[in-house]
């Protein structure tokens, strides 16, 4: 029933879409009260599904949680995939947002509109070549020419195509550069922030310095005169940093984590039971 072919398949598709649209059309006529109740009910059912999937004990043999003959574990996989797919369909919304902003910039000739043109150019070129490259694998049809998708194994390391040029040449380097800007920012942040304005700032600074020095040879040289296997070896700067990380950093992270976990748990329950009223959509549905 869930797998159909040929004419039946088309009929099922059309039927499903038509049915869904009809249902929505009927609901559209309903009162606010009905829509509101429906929304709350759906939120509840959505949460209930994963709640049960977690709390119903699984069969030790199959490791599947079964409720009234339904395998929740298997269903969870389908639900997970469906969530992923529905999320995937929203990507165009993101694209709309960008196109809206940059389209307006170009149309109204706002200052800097030429940069928006660059955005469109990059977006279009990359989209065309990325999809062209794999089009045949997905939908069949003629293969993309070699300069779009070079599949010669001899070039395996660096296919000589436009997509690779854009990806390896631009995207990867832009990514890496933006990431590496952190090196500069971590220096300027340290210079500005690590000043002994208060006791807390002093502690922050001293510990950060010890840890920094514990990582590089120059810092290790400071305490290298302490023998590495005597009773005092713990005072070597690298051992000291390790000790701070395991004996103080770890419990702090754990304690903060417990609080965060409970906070998230409470938040999850408030959303699930629609107790977060007015937070997201205040007045009416």
């Amino acid at each position: 029933m869930w797998t159909l072919t040929g004419f039946k398949f088309i009929l099922a598709i059309v039927g499903a879409v038509a049915g869904a649209v009809l249902l929505l059309a009927i609901l559209h006529q309903a009162s606010h009260q009905v829509k509101r109740t429906l929304t709350i009910a759906l939120t509840f059912i959505g949460g209930l599904f994963y709640f049960l999937e977690f709390f119903i004990p699984p069969d030790p043999k199959t490791e599947e949680a079964v409720l009234f003959g339904w395998s929740l574990t298997q269903a969870a996989e389908v639900v997970g995939n469906a969530t992923l797919v529905i999320g995937g369909f929203t990507f165009l919304l993101g694209v709309f947002s960008l196109v809206h902003i940059h389209g307006n910039n170009v149309r109204r000739r706002r200052p800097g509109w030429s940069y928006s043109l660059a955005f469109f150019a990059a977006f279009l070129v990359m989209t065309v070549f990325a999809f062209w490259k794999d089009w045949q694998t997905w939908f069949g049809g003629p293969a993309a020419p070699a300069w779009v998708n070079d599949q010669n194994l001899a070039h395996a390391a660096m296919p000589q195509d436009v997509y690779t040029l854009l990806f390896e040449g631009l995207v990867r380097n832009l990514d890496a550069t933006m990431f590496s800007i952190l090196a500069f920012y971590i220096v300027s942040a340290a210079y500005r922030a690590f000043r002994i304005r208060s006791g807390e700032a002093a502690v922050l600074m001293v510990v950060a310095l010890v840890l920094m020095m514990g990582q590089v040879p120059l810092g290790m040289a400071l305490t290298n005169w302490i023998p590495s296997d005597g009773p005092w070896s713990g005072l070597r700067i690298e051992s000291l940093s390790q000790y701070v990380l395991t004996a103080i950093n770890a419990p702090v992270q754990r304690a903060i984590g417990f609080g965060l976990g409970l906070g998230a748990l409470a938040m999850a329950m408030r959303i699930w039971l629609s107790l977060e009223r007015g937070t997201y959509f205040g007045q009416e549905v």
Partner: peptide
């Protein structure tokens, strides 16, 4: 090492000014 030392010097300068 030099970069770490550089940060150390910067931090010292910042505190010195304080």
């Amino acid at each position: 090492s030099f970069a770490h030392l550089y940060i150390l010097i910067l931090i010292i300068l910042g505190n010195l000014s304080l």
